[in-house]
């Protein structure tokens, strides 16, 4: 295990000790609990998260909706939102499995939302965007120093909304509005209905709906988050947590001292870090091959490589 997991100070398997919070969370409730704790402690004064239409309807001042017709927003379409209380946080919790442009709110968070200390959760590419914005703040005036906690999530690939629509309504034959939860795990894509029905799809069926831009990504475990987390590597109901930066280390230490998480050493849990490492290598190897193939994509003509 090496570079594929990025730089990190520590890694553990963890879950929130808040039973109520866990009811809303995807796995161990790490992101929700971290932000809830950081809000309580004043480490952040708001967090950019992926919310939904229901959330936007109840909290119109917490989102920016560009669509002219609110009624046209479909179920499971993520809407970036700024939450500043635990109730709002829980109302937005859970993984949406389609693209939520959280970084789009990053500057506005410091403007009309008035945040000085921003929390943001995002995929590895969004963490890359956040760090590039801090080092090269070309269009991000007075934003970089306001980012107080960036939590990255593990990500193999993402789907456009229409991809999820296709998977759920066509392949799984369920209406999106009747879906309670979606999940990728144990090599399958799971769709849980509100009435208790469960449909599983082989991951193979999902590949053609992946967002093409994901296929050049070389980061599985959010190497650039202050803290990064995902279910892979930990038992059901737990999450694997990498603590990466000085900020991450400080927030995690405070959270542990406050007892908001219970943890198990990574070496003691199954399937453990080996699986994280294996999947990270799979993603990186596959996408390096894509980047390589782009070099000779045409006849003597290449597709552009974003990495320099």
């Amino acid at each position: 295990m090496g570079a594929e997991l990025g730089k990190y100070k520590s890694v553990v398997s963890a879950r929130s000790t808040d039973k109520e919070l866990l009811k809303y969370a995807q796995d161990g409730g790490i992101v929700s609990q971290l932000f809830a704790f950081a809000l309580d402690e004043g480490i952040i004064d708001g967090a950019i998260v992926a919310a939904s239409k229901e959330f936007a309807a109840k909290n119109p001042s917490k989102v920016i909706i560009d669509s002219t017709n609110f009624d046209m927003i479909e179920p499971w379409r993520p809407i970036p939102a700024i939450v500043s209380t635990k109730a709002e946080l829980l109302a937005a919790a859970g993984t949406k499995y389609n693209i939520c442009p959280n970084v789009a709110l990053l500057k506005e968070a410091t403007r009309s939302f008035g945040l000085d200390k921003i929390g943001i959760v995002g995929t590895p590419c969004q963490m890359q965007a956040v760090r590039k914005a801090q080092l090269y703040p070309i269009g991000m005036r007075d934003v970089g120093a306001s980012i107080a906690l960036a939590v990255g999530i593990f990500c193999m690939e993402n789907f456009p909304y229409q991809g999820i629509l296709q998977l759920v309504e066509d392949h799984a034959a369920m209406k999106l509005e009747s879906v309670k939860k979606m999940e990728i795990g144990k090599g399958k894509f799971w769709v849980y209905g509100k009435r208790g029905q469960v449909v599983q799809l082989p991951l193979k069926a999902t590949h053609k709906y992946e967002q093409p831009g994901c296929h050049v990504c070389l980061d599985y475990v959010s190497n650039l988050g202050d803290i990064s987390t995902g279910s892979v590597g930990s038992p059901d109901g737990w999450s694997t947590v990498f603590v990466r930066s000085k900020i991450g280390d400080s927030v995690w230490a405070k959270a542990m001292a406050a007892g908001v998480f219970e943890t198990q050493p990574m070496e003691k849990v199954k399937p453990g870090l080996e699986l994280v490492s294996k999947l990270a290598n799979e993603k990186i190897t596959k996408n390096r091959a894509t980047l390589e193939a782009r070099k000779t994509f045409g006849v003597g003509k290449a597709l552009r490589n974003p990495y320099i």
Binding site: I99, T123, G139
Partner: peptide
């Protein structure tokens, strides 16, 4: 084929 929808352009 490189966009992954992070929203950085919109913020900038």
């Amino acid at each position: 084929g490189l966009c992954m929808g992070c929203g950085t352009c919109a913020a900038s």
